[in-house]
Design a binder for these strands. Structure first.
Lengths: 343, 343
DNA sequence: TGACATGTCCAAAGCGGTTTGGGAATGATT
DNA sequence: AATCATTCCCAAACCGCTTTGGACATGTCA
């Protein structure tokens, strides 16, 4: 059943039916109700392809996911972020279009979104320092919101982010307060913006207490379980090993825990661990009491809000860029305790 | 630059330009080259909205993800499956449309896909026994491929699946060969089809050796780390505890490992563990030697092939349903060893 | 040489909606 | 009673492509 047929069964013109269903004022209330009733009765749903062509809007938001940054790893937080964003899209009548690319195809994917008109805007994932995508998107005129920030990119642009620097500063200070002086940092790749900020917060905390920063205790790589294991294993083999780890993700932290246990040590007593927790639905940090002491910020909630922000931008072109900063919670769990006294 | 403008600059009709670019034979080769050169020069990209309306095809595949099955967990294998499917879509010129729903909205989402014409077909994720979506999709006439099967659903339908029953039978037999007699099963929800098949394989193996099946050693819940911990913790508290665990996912296995270590036991010596490994990119099972002995099957590869199958079906309507079964590899790692002699 | 096929192009009619620009009642105003 | 505004509806244009149904020129065959 399409619009024309529906109009015929009602003895009305397509114009009037269209207006009745879309809430335009120039239609009699009685007629409108008659139209709405008929539409429901016949399960009329307007053809999305026609609406898109007629209105020039895509009613869709694009997400480009790059799987070839390194070793073809799929970022595990995508699933939750996209679930959050998807909730918003469903509620607002938008669709989510997802494109999987490798490095070489990424810029082309954004240009193609714009030229072919398949989306009204995009979410930029996993920004790097001075991320070139920001300039690209501004140049081609495709609205966007960055999930995170991109130090050094031409301001202003719209973003939503968690205060990574403060979160990691607080976490490091928490460990320092417990008497830890040798604190390892197990971080993501340092070309990623969030990793730069976390490292900066960690360094600020140590410097603030006059604790020397030891490059031998700083690790940075793809955020996998095996990386966590390797990094912690190496750190614990240090002649002056760390008594605490500050870690960038739950997945890494699981690897760190494995290395601690393999070394015959006990997490929370011999060695403390604080991790960042994206509050992923399939990887909850314990139930009543958190397993890991953690800086927590829901990536799913970030997805919801990023989507809202972007739709708002798409609907109000020309408005000033928006941004929103979350503060991470510091949740105390079982993985931290006072630094063991030297013995 | 749209088709009409491009045609004007070339002094040709839109008809001819369209045909030249789409490879129709009724255009002079010389003209075709002239058109292609001009298209490239002006960065012409046809408007996708117009193509869709004109051709009646969406050139898009839908994925409906249900986040409210229970506790709003986002299935962690989606990311990799979708990355695999996305590779295929990009290669074949299709788009991936993702819709996030809760239970109440799911059927409506499929009907809406069909009625509004936003996709040409869908992938059905996480099928349950006698999954009603199969009948629904056949009824509304939307092409689909099921990732997994749905015991009891009206055959035939197209699917792609791993041989879960055989994989778990082999894994259980491997443990039996090592002398284990008390083997716990830590499985997903048993309304999920894959979980039913895995359990069946496990039971077949035990029965084949005359080992009694003990319900007290069988666990089934949402596949999280904490579930793995709780299940293993409970099992190990059994007066006659298991010496081995057969587990449905790496995430669960990590929780099982934690419980084993908390109990002061060593995985691979005191207690053996075999897990199913979906070969998720962010959760590799070790590097050279697998951490866990595992039945492995790449969910990303399944995504690639499911997408290929669906596009093939969409392009050849009326053809017979297709299906494809993978065999999981049994990879021996460090988490299994001979059953400890009773002492 | 006339009939017919072939090669090359175009005008126009779609796809299914939205939106513009009236037009016919009806009511209000002078 | 003539004028004007308002209400409610419709015809037709339009969005940017694809596709149908010729048109014309040229070549081929009997």
């Amino acid at each position: 059943m399409n619009l024309k047929e529906l109009a015929q069964t009602l003895g009305l013109s397509p114009t009037t039916v269209s207006r009745a269903l879309n809430g335009y004022p120039e239609v009699n209330e009685e007629t409108r109700e008659r139209v709405q009733a008929a539409a429901k009765r016949h399960h009329y749903q307007p053809n999305a392809r026609a609406i898109r062509l007629a209105t020039g809007r895509a009613l869709a938001i694009g997400h480009v996911i790059n799987v070839a940054t390194k070793h073809e790893i799929v970022n595990p937080i995508f699933a939750d972020f996209i679930a959050g964003a998807g909730e918003t899209y469903t509620r607002m009548g938008y669709e989510l279009v997802l494109t999987v690319v490798n490095d070489a195809e990424e810029a082309r994917a954004y240009r193609s979104f714009k030229a072919r008109g398949t989306v009204d805007g995009v979410i930029v994932h996993a920004p790097r320092a001075a991320d070139p995508r920001i300039e690209l998107l501004n140049e081609i005129g495709l609205p966007f919101v960055v999930h995170g920030r991109a130090t050094g990119a031409p301001e202003p642009y719209s973003w939503i982010d968690v205060n990574n620097r403060r979160a990691f500063r607080r976490a490091a200070e928490f460990l320092l307060d417990l008497g830890h002086r040798r604190i390892a940092l197990v971080n993501g790749f340092e070309f990623m913006d969030f990793a730069i900020r976390r490292r900066s917060g960690y360094e600020q905390a140590l410097e603030g207490r006059g604790v020397p920063i030891d490059p031998a205790l700083m690790f940075s790589d793809e955020m996998t379980e095996t990386f966590g294991y390797r990094a912690a294993h190496a750190a614990l083999a240090n002649p002056d090993p760390p008594t605490a780890f500050l870690v960038s993700s739950m997945i890494i932290a699981i690897g760190v825990r494995r290395a601690i246990q393999d070394a015959g040590l006990r997490m929370g007593r011999d060695v403390s661990v604080i991790t960042h927790d994206d509050d992923l639905s399939y990887l909850k940090n314990g139930e009543d009491v958190p397993i890991f002491t953690a800086t927590r910020s829901s990536v799913r909630e970030a997805g919801r809000q990023a989507a809202e922000m972007l739709i708002d931008i798409v609907r109000n072109p020309g408005a000033a860029p928006r941004n929103r900063m979350f503060e991470a919670e510091l949740m105390v769990g079982l993985s931290t305790g006072p630094a063991p006294s030297k013995g």
